[in-house]
Each structure stands twice: as structure tokens, then as C-alpha cells.
Amino acid sequence: MSRRYPEYDVQSKRGGPSWNDVTRQIVDARLAIPREPRFLDATQWTILCALCACVVPQPQNRPEVPLAALIDARLLADHGDGYRDARLPPFRQAWRIGLAALDAEALDRHAEGFAGLSRTQQDELLADAQAGDLVHPAWQGMPSRLFFSLRLAHDIAAAYYRHPVAWNEVGFGGPAAPRGYVRLGANHRDAWEPAEARPGAESRARELNRHVR
């Protein structure tokens, strides 16, 4: 449950005038994606799951957004960006190389695969990747810095913030067709928008959010 927007659930608007048919169906399809890997093998999948937990740590008190499954589905569809930095290989290849390279770095450094490291060790390794300090031959010349910022962190963060659970967390109004919005000014809120729990006004926000439709 969102801390800032308690009891706000963007999907409570699903049947209302902010969600048209096309939006309902494509969001439903996203929520229904298979939780098992269809593109990656078991080893790659385990590494990816660990990476997702590092890039977007999720609270324990709600069902987890299946980030690894969302990435795997994108890999299955080979849905790249449509352009790539010349220093990176194509979408699928970049992910395959990156997963293997991070595992190889972990084995070199800790004699344990990436998924088996402690969270601190994982975070340290990723910080080194972000800084471009990882140069194991398993990278096959792909700069770890670019893989981290343009693929790994980029793709995982984008997958998370395209999910309704994340919209609840940040207080996003979500889908808005055809109804749109009326009150555009600062501190003005339409009745179908999330209410923020300002200090001392948490229960009021809770009440308002229960009535979002």
C-alpha cells in the first residue's frame, strides 16, 4: 500500500469514465502476463530476478510487481527501443551478455553466482557496473556502464512505472480517457485523483482515496 496515497487504487477507476475499452484491455493483459520465464533459461531468470530486486526494491506488504516476467515478455517479443547506441549489441544480445557477465563478475569476486550474493554484495557490484569499472571478458567488449544505464536499470525501472501498482505509489491519476481532468491549479484535486496524506491529514486522505472512482 502506498505510504503517501493510502488506500488509493488506480484500478478502482477501471469501470469509470477514465478508462476506455482499449485501456482496460491492454492493462488487463499486462496484469495477466505469465509469471514463468518464456525467453530466458533458468539461470538467466534467477539472475534477472535478483537484479530486479536491486533496481526497484518492493515492499513486502503487497503482491510483488512481476518485473522479471515483464522483462522476459519484452525479450520474448524482441521489443527493443528501435535504436541503439553503437557500443551496445541488439536488445536480446545485450541482455544475454549482461546477465552472463554480471554472474561471471560475481563468481570472480565472491566465488558465488550473482543471485547467491548478499544484497550488499549485489548492490556493490551494480554500483561498479554503473561506474563502468567491470571489464570481465564475459562482457565481450560491451561497456558495463552503458549496459547498466541504457538496458538494465532503464528497462527494469520503465517496466515498474508502467504498472498500476507503481501509479498508486507515486500518486499518478492513471488512464484518463475520455474523462480527463478539470482542476488544473496547484493543490487542486479532482474527486477522481489520489489524495496525498499530508502530516495530520492521513485519515482524510484515506477517506478520499476510498471514494476514487
Binding site: 505510504r3 503517501r4 536491486c54 533496481v55 526497484v56 526494491p57 548492490d123 551494480l126 554503473q130 544505464s149 541504457l150 536499470a153 532503464h154 525501472a157 520503465a158 515498474y160 512505472y161 508502467r162 507503481a166 501509479w167 505509489e169 507515486v170 500518486g171 499518478f172
Partner: peptide, 24 residues
């Protein structure tokens, strides 16, 4: 939100809890 997250990751280098906190 996703475009904003991409800016936080790509331009500001945020990830992990720092990213989640900033996005809030």
C-alpha cells in the same frame, strides 16, 4: 511516470531505494 523514471535513471543515475523514494 515511466518517462520520469527513465529521466531519473538515465540522467540522474538513480536506482534502488533512492529511485523509489525520488519517484514518490
Amino acid at each position: 511516470p515511466a518517462a520520469w523514471a527513465e529521466t531519473q535513471v538515465g540522467n540522474r543515475g538513480l536506482w534502488g531505494q533512492a529511485l523509489v523514494d525520488e519517484m514518490e
